[in-house]
């Protein structure tokens, strides 16, 4: 037995120490929620899908860097950077990002409504606005694992495999901000839209279906009508692609086959995010008992 062992009375004691404020409460809500959405403190089935999707998000970058490590610089004729441009990364794993957000965002809000936990939360130090802020943060943190972390890893690999890493950093330092900007734009978009759709129901299955329908149905309709009517702006109905196109516009040499500028895609992204915020404000702005 350790000499430090003590017998402790598990009695209720008063706490008169410092108490944290609202921001700590929001952070606590975000941290607990995001960990649970990723399957923490739950069975292996709850962990399987999020972890698999995160690994798939990293896969293109890991494969490219792995090939470079195994076979040397000659394996990519145009150079390592051209093998997997940062601007294309999100597009390549777009389906992973989409499914990941569909898996994560309903898990963040549907159980609270199903179990009627909202009244419990609102009786604590957090307000309705704080709750929404916490949940947006909770959605954003895991989504950034697939929208931001993989291209950052790729950037780090490209720099390390460069003949002169510091020279690479000097030439491509702007790419860091482009990667962060693109990752945040895509992440915030999917977080807000996913939460807004999920807030409409207490049933997780309905939220998943509704979210997929929201992203897929306008995309199909917009694509068909754009082709039939030869109206390029109908392509903006591709809600799943909106943030990806806007993010691509952050990189030089952006071109869109439909001749829609990156600014229009970005404006559409912002509009949809504002609508999503409005939905959240309506859903959580009133008394929910």
């Amino acid at each position: 037995m350790s000499s430090d062992a003590r017998v402790t009375d598990v009695a209720y004691s008063r706490y008169d120490g410092p108490r944290a404020g609202r921001f700590a409460a929001i952070w606590s809500l975000a941290r607990w929620s995001s960990l649970r959405a990723l399957g923490a403190r739950r069975g292996w089935k709850a962990k399987l899908i999020p972890i698999t999707l995160i690994l798939l998000g990293f896969a293109p970058g890991i494969v490219v860097l792995g090939l470079r490590a195994l076979f040397g610089p000659s394996v990519f004729k145009g150079g390592l950077a051209d093998a997997l441009p940062y601007s294309d990364y999100a597009g390549i794993i777009s389906i992973v990002i989409l499914i990941f957000s569909v898996v994560v965002t309903p898990e963040l809000v549907c159980p609270d409504r199903r179990d009627r936990t909202l009244s419990l939360y609102f009786s604590t130090a957090i307000s309705r606005g704080d709750y929404v802020a916490g949940k947006v943060l909770a959605a954003l943190m895991p989504i950034l694992l697939v929208t931001l972390a993989p291209p950052l890893i790729l950037y780090a690999g490209n720099m390390l495999f460069a003949v002169h890493p510091l020279a690479y950093l000097e030439r491509h330092w702007l790419d860091i901000f482009r990667i962060i900007g693109a990752g945040l734009l895509i992440g915030i978009y999917y977080a807000l839209v996913g939460l807004a759709v999920s807030s409409l129901t207490a049933r997780r299955a309905f939220a998943v279906g509704g979210y997929l329908a929201f992203l897929a149905i306008p995309t199909v309709i917009g694509g068909v009508l754009a082709h039939a009517l030869d109206e390029r702006y109908l392509r903006l109905l591709a809600f799943a692609a909106v943030p990806l196109q806007a993010a691509r516009g952050l990189y030089p040499g952006y071109s869109d086959e439909g001749h829609i500028s990156a600014g229009v895609w970005a404006a559409t992204s912002v509009e949809l995010m504002v609508v999503a915020l409005a939905v959240l404000a309506i859903r959580y702005g009133r008394d929910t008992g």
Binding site: A24, S28, W32, D115, R116, T117, L120, T124
Partner: peptide
Amino acid sequence: HSCLPLGMTARDLVVHMGELRGLPR
């Protein structure tokens, strides 16, 4: 009424609610 998150353990819930009411973790 019943308003507890059914998918959490009692310990996790109580810790979480303590943090939401200002207690350090």
